[in-house]
């Protein structure tokens, strides 16, 4: 398998602190309303406990990215060396087709620049030997950068409940599901 950089999301470790989203904002200073990384709480239908669980999501840098396929001006390309999907803003004409087409809502419209934009996986930082800002900032190491070509951890899932399933896109993201909360009964003490 070719190298494919991916996000590993350990839902069991994630505490929903939004530090990853803030780190992204600090790094790129997106204008208000333009969000590259979002922390989604799981609904009670999926995780029906007083404790809560979260998915921290950004662009999934899909193996077959629909944003890249639908873009009429070839403003997207996928890097050969690591599979990161890069959006070239200079080429973008702001048609919004990628925004409509991505089932994960990754590309966002920047009303000031009148162009789309999305998570770049901090490829400039990666090329400089650094971790992406979101991964670096995570206080619980719930968000990690992995290479799917060499990833060998048991029990990971690609499409957990609450995450849209699109095998034809093959999103480069893996999840470790949250465990059931520990119930401490009086007789256990």
């Amino acid at each position: 398998m070719r190298s494919q950089t991916a996000f590993y999301i350990d839902v069991q470790r994630c505490i929903g602190c939004f530090t990853c989203a803030m780190a992204c904002k600090n790094q790129y200073h997106q204008i208000p309303g333009v969000i590259w990384r979002q922390v989604y709480p799981l609904s009670p239908e999926i995780y029906p406990y007083r404790e809560r669980a979260f998915y921290s999501l950004a662009c999934n840098h899909c193996q077959r990215p629909t944003c890249l396929e639908v873009c009429p001006v070839k403003a997207y390309f996928k890097r050969d060396q690591d599979g990161i999907v890069v959006h070239e803003q200079e080429a973008c004409i702001g048609c919004g087709n990628c925004i409509r087409a991505c089932p994960y809502g990754a590309p966002r419209y920047n009303p000031e620049q009148r162009k789309a934009e999305k998570c770049s996986f901090c490829w400039q930082r990666i090329d400089a030997g650094l971790l992406p800002a979101c991964v670096l900032s995570c206080p619980t190491e719930a968000l990690q950068m992995v290479d799917l070509a060499s990833l060998d951890r048991p029990g990971l899932v690609q499409y957990p409940p609450g995450f849209p399933r699109f095998p034809e896109l093959n999103p480069s993201v893996r999840f470790r599901l949250p465990s059931l909360p520990t119930v401490v009964k009086r007789e256990d003490i």
């Binding site: 989604y40 709480p41 799981l42 609904s43 089932p103 994960y104 809502g105 849209p164």
Partner: peptide
């Protein structure tokens, strides 16, 4: 679809 992430 993105409007329902985290839900069923």
């Amino acid at each position: 679809t993105a409007g329902n992430i985290g839900g069923l």
